[in-house]
């Protein structure tokens, strides 16, 4: 009985993860989250994309990033919804899902003091979105302001594939 129950719970766990994977999990982006992201992806080429549900150019770019993620499984994809709070988790999830980014590492600004969150990321950033930060294997950061050219991102990704790393 015990073994069967454990198996059932395990199975359910797996099922719910699979079901929930269709929904984009959103992590609350707070003070310290930026350093946490940099630490957890250290040594791996990572694309960090800042966007927001009310931003017109973001709506165009998000599906392109979804395709980029599919085309470049070796690149870690992190999205951060940086629209000013109150933010809408449902709208954010729905847009990520439609863009094919549900399985990316998705965050959402969840501190009312957005100035401080932005300052931790880049003191010069005044909040314009979209914005993409390309973090290379060696930690070098390239910031793309505004909508990124996918061809440029592809080029960067290919460059990263050429470098050696722990992966």
């Amino acid at each position: 009985m015990k073994r069967e129950l454990l198996a059932a719970v395990f199975l359910l766990g797996t099922l719910s993860v699979a079901a929930a994977a269709e929904d984009a999990e959103l992590r609350p982006f707070e003070r310290g989250s930026w350093q946490q992201i940099l630490r957890s992806h250290a040594g791996r080429p990572t694309l960090v994309h800042f966007w927001g549900v009310t931003c017109g150019p973001c709506k165009v770019e998000l599906p392109q990033l979804g395709k980029f993620m599919k085309d470049h499984p070796g690149i870690d994809i992190v999205t951060i919804s940086a629209d000013l709070v109150p933010n809408l988790p449902e709208a954010t999830q729905s847009m990520l899902q439609k863009a094919g980014l549900a399985s990316a590492e998705n965050w959402m600004f969840s501190d009312g003091f957005a100035d401080r969150l932005r300052f931790e990321i880049d003191p010069a950033w005044q909040g314009d979105i979209p914005r993409t930060m390309l973090v290379a294997r060696d930690g070098a950061v390239t910031t793309v302001e505004g909508s990124a050219e996918m061809s440029e991102l592809d080029k960067w990704a290919q460059g990263q594939a050429g470098t050696t790393g722990s992966r």
Binding site: A8, L12, G13, L15, S16, A20, E25, P89, S110
Partner: peptide, 28 residues
């Protein structure tokens, strides 16, 4: 048990992070 576990997992999955976000701290 399965239904309960499923419901719990789902509600945690959906509400955990958002409940934190709706905290006063997250408000402007």
């Amino acid at each position: 048990l399965g239904a309960a576990a499923m419901a719990t997992v789902f509600s945690l999955w959906h509400c955990g992070a958002f409940a934190q976000m709706n905290h006063q701290h997250a408000s402007e």
